[in-house]
């Protein structure tokens, strides 16, 4: 099981990392790229805490082999803000106190961003459907859904960089 070198774009920057076949993308992001916003929650695809965008699509980095994303573009929660300006979704989460302990927040925001990229004006039902894979044990989801709808209202839809 020899390590191999893969090339990734992480939050817009070209990166070259050495990984083994059994390295998970989540651990490469956290331990090699030192981007610890992306969370390890359940490790089996049930909580949504490790959600990142791969080529613009929301995926679970705890169930993605790092070797399998050679050549692809990864965006993590750290990559949403631009020029020290928070993404409108991040702003909305702050405005609506959609954060309590904060552990689910990166996954929630990455999913919300993905939703608004493909559907800039979702209904409340569509927000809840899209976020159904993100578990939050603190907020009861009400403030989170409110934040996403508010971000949509402010015209937060549109493509992110990759």
């Amino acid at each position: 099981m020899k390590p191999r070198v893969i090339h990734l774009t992480v939050n817009g920057e070209q990166r070259e990392v050495s990984v083994s076949p059994n390295d998970l993308l989540l651990n490469v992001i956290r331990e090699q790229e030192h981007l610890t916003g992306t969370k390890y929650g359940c490790g089996i695809g049930e909580c949504g805490g490790c959600t990142v965008h791969i080529d613009g699509q929301p995926m679970l980095s705890c169930l993605v082999l790092a070797v399998a994303v050679d050549g692809r573009a990864i965006v993590t929660i750290e990559g949403l803000a631009r020029n020290r300006q928070l993404d409108p979704v991040q702003e909305a989460f702050l405005d609506h106190s959609a954060v309590q302990c904060g552990f689910c927040t990166p996954g929630m925001i990455m999913m919300s961003r993905a939703l608004l990229n493909e559907n800039p004006r979702p209904t409340e039902h569509e927000v809840r459907e899209f976020l159904r894979g993100c578990l939050c044990r603190c907020t009861g989801y009400v403030s989170i859904v409110r934040a996403v709808l508010a971000a949509a209202e402010r015209g937060a839809g549109g493509e992110e960089r990759s």
């Binding site: 076949p21 059994n22 390295d23 651990n27 390890y40 070797v67």
Partner: peptide, 15 residues
Amino acid sequence: TNTHILVAEFDYVEP
């Protein structure tokens, strides 16, 4: 079990 990592070692090929 530890779901943080993949304990097993294996080869990976991408035909």
